[in-house]
C-alpha cells in the first residue's frame, strides 16, 4: 500500500512538473529550444564545399572584391572544422585559414602564408575584428555552435518572403565578442536565419545582416545565395554571394590539418 501511494504521488508530481514545464516555458527556455531545433535541422550534412564572393562597399560606393573557397567538415561531439582558401585579391592568393571551432572554448586557428610557406597558429583575442576589411567580423563567419550563446525568445512576427519568423535574442557566452547581443529572425517552418541585427558593446544597433535566395540541398539543408551586411554606424556594407554549394563530397579529417593548408 505504502509503496503504491508513494508511486502515485511521485507520478503525480512528475506530471505536474512536466505540464508546468510546457505551459510556462520561460523565454530563455523557448529561445534555447528553438535554437537547438534550428541546429538539429542542419545535422548530418557531413561536409560541404562552396565558393564565396565578397564585395566590400564603402560609404562613397567604391567596391572591392574578395574570392574565397570554403570547405567545412561537420563536427561529431565537437564544433565544425573549416578551411578557407583565398583566391582574391591577387596578393593574398594561396593564403589559407584552418579553423577548429568549439563551443565555449576558444576556436583553434591556423593561418598559412604562401610566400614564406609558413603555417602560423593565431589566437582568437580579436575575433571581433573585421574579416579582410569587410563588415563581417571573424566571429560572424565562424561556426555558430549552440553553446556559444545564451538565448531568449522575444516574439513571433511576419518577416521576409511572407514567412513567419521567431525572433530570438542571443547573447554571446564566449569571451572577446564585439557584441552585447544579437537578434535573430528564424522562419518558423524551416528555421532559416532570415535576418540578424547586431548590437555593439554599448548596446546600440551596429549592423544588420539579411540573407536571401535560400536554396535547399539534398532535400534538407537550406543555404542562402546572398548575405548582405550593412553597418549602420559607418554606412559601409559587404555582400556575400555563395555559389557552387556541394554537400557530402567525401571530405575527411585528413583534409583539415596543417598540411592541408598548403594545398
Amino acid at each position: 500500500m505504502l509503496i503504491k501511494k508513494t508511486l502515485l504521488i511521485s507520478m503525480l508530481t512528475a506530471i505536474t512538473l512536466l505540464s508546468t514545464n510546457v505551459m510556462a516555458e520561460s523565454p530563455q527556455q523557448k529561445g534555447l529550444r528553438i535554437s537547438k531545433l534550428a541546429d538539429a535541422k542542419d545535422n548530418g550534412f557531413s561536409d560541404f564545399t562552396a565558393n564565396m564572393v565578397m564585395t566590400l562597399k564603402n560609404r562613397a560606393g567604391k567596391t572591392s572584391r574578395r574570392i574565397i573557397r570554403i570547405k567545412t567538415l561537420e563536427g561529431k561531439g565537437d564544433g565544425d572544422k573549416s578551411l578557407s582558401l583565398f583566391d582574391q585579391p591577387q596578393d593574398v592568393k594561396g593564403t589559407a585559414m584552418l579553423t577548429f571551432s568549439h563551443g565555449l572554448k576558444a576556436d583553434d586557428q591556423w593561418l598559412y602564408l604562401p610566400a614564406l610557406k609558413r603555417v602560423k597558429r593565431i589566437n582568437s583575442r580579436n575575433k571581433s575584428g573585421p574579416f579582410m576589411g569587410s563588415e563581417f567580423a571573424f566571429e560572424d563567419l565562424g561556426s555558430q555552435e549552440v553553446e556559444k550563446f545564451k538565448y531568449k525568445f522575444l516574439r513571433t512576427e511576419k518577416c521576409a518572403n511572407g514567412w513567419t519568423c521567431n525572433v530570438i535574442e542571443r547573447t554571446p557566452a564566449y569571451k572577446y565578442s564585439g557584441y552585447s547581443k544579437q537578434q535573430v529572425w528564424l522562419d518558423t517552418k524551416e528555421y532559416r536565419p532570415v535576418k540578424v541585427m547586431f548590437y555593439d558593446r554599448k548596446n546600440s544597433l551596429m549592423k544588420t545582416l539579411q540573407s536571401t535566395g535560400f536554396k535547399q540541398y539534398l532535400g534538407r539543408y537550406w543555404r542562402p545565395t546572398t548575405m548582405s551586411m550593412v553597418n549602420h554606424q559607418t554606412g559601409k556594407s559587404t555582400i556575400l554571394q555563395w555559389t557552387n554549394y556541394k554537400f557530402k563530397t567525401g571530405l575527411t579529417a585528413r583534409d583539415f590539418n596543417k598540411k592541408a593548408l598548403a594545398r
Partner: peptide, 12 residues
C-alpha cells in the same frame, strides 16, 4: 601579446 582592438574600425 594581442591588445584589445584600439578602435571601432578594428585597429589591432
Amino acid at each position: 601579446h594581442s591588445l584589445p582592438l584600439l578602435s571601432d574600425s578594428g585597429l589591432e
